Amino acid sequence: MTSSVAAWVRVAAAALLVWITAAPGHAADADIAQVMAPSGHLRAGLYPGTPTSVLPDGTDNPRGVGYAIGKEMARRLHVDYEPVVFTKNAEVLEAIKTGAVDVVFTNASAARAKEMDFGPVYLEIELGYLVPDGSALSNAGDVDASGRKVGVTTGSTSDATLGRELKEATLIRSPTLKDAVALLKDHEIDAFATNKATLFEMAEQVPGSRVLDGRWGEERHAIAIPKGRDAARDFLRDFTAEIRSSGLVSAAAERAGLKGTIVPGK
């Protein structure tokens, strides 16, 4: 090898080393972690009582699809995982709007998309009704009738949607799912509306209750982040594709006992 060729090889090798160490891919992990979790902790907004979020059980690894996704996201970002459990979903949604948490796992409705940014859908769930023991109702289509009282959680998708769509029945708003369970037990409402994953969980707390056949809509759950973190969009897209294809979502759903899911595209 001539001296000129050897010199060129040395220069090329040095340039390659500089490019490798400075390439965007090597800085990407640190950069995206700073965008997604600026505090150094991934703060995941959750609320109890539904398998789509978290089902606290006193262990370090509670059941819940949202909890499991957040834990995996923190691992991918190489940051600490900080689940922040609120009393009700309305508090979770407010926290992501203000940036008090970094991610939430919720129905990607058009109204919410105005206040937070969503990644792709990772889970679709039927929306339905839970009725107390002794109810004569058998199908979701039977609910909207004069004199009927339909429970929803305040500020939920069910609240917004059924507030527009129910023509005869009256909405009764509850601040939390725990309050809704009490209303069903006391027969103060004729049905409670939300996604079927939550309804089946609630049914275990209300003896004799039933989830009605049929559905009045679907929820499309996605990871949401605060507005202004546009640099995280590619990460959210890729991460969502990975957790779906790897089976993480389906495994978390099975562990949480989640029911009422819809095959995407059906």
Rank of each mutant, 00 (worst) to 15 (best):
S3C: 00
S3Q: 13
A6H: 09
A7Y: 09
V11M: 06
V11C: 03
A12Q: 08
L16E: 00
L16G: 06
V18T: 11
I20G: 00
T21F: 15
A22M: 11
A22Y: 02
G25K: 05
A28P: 03
V35H: 08
G45K: 10
G49A: 08
P51S: 05
P51K: 04
L55F: 04
T59N: 12
T59Y: 14
D60C: 01
G64Q: 05
G64W: 13
G64P: 02
V65W: 10
K71P: 04
R76P: 01
V85H: 07
F86H: 14
K88T: 15
T106L: 15
N107L: 00
A108P: 00
A108C: 03
S109R: 05
A113N: 02
F118T: 05
L123M: 15
E126A: 13
G128R: 04
G128S: 08
Y129P: 01
G134L: 07
G134A: 12
A136G: 07
A136L: 11
A140V: 10
G141H: 08
D142M: 03
V143S: 07
D144F: 11
G151L: 12
G151T: 12
T153G: 03
G155K: 03
S156Q: 04
T161A: 11
R164D: 14
R164F: 09
L171N: 09
I172V: 15
I172F: 11
P175A: 13
K178A: 15
D186M: 13
E188Q: 14
F192G: 07
N195P: 01
K196F: 05
K196I: 12
T198K: 06
A203H: 04
P207W: 07
P207F: 10
G208H: 05
S209A: 15
D213G: 13
E218M: 11
A222M: 08
I223R: 01
I225N: 01
I225T: 14
P226W: 08
K227W: 00
K227R: 14
R229N: 11
R229H: 14
R229P: 01
R229M: 10
A231N: 06
D238P: 00
D238M: 07
A241V: 01
E242Y: 06
S245Y: 09
S245C: 03
A252F: 12
R255F: 04
R255T: 09
A256L: 11
K259E: 15
G260C: 07
G260K: 04
P264K: 13
K266G: 14
K266L: 08
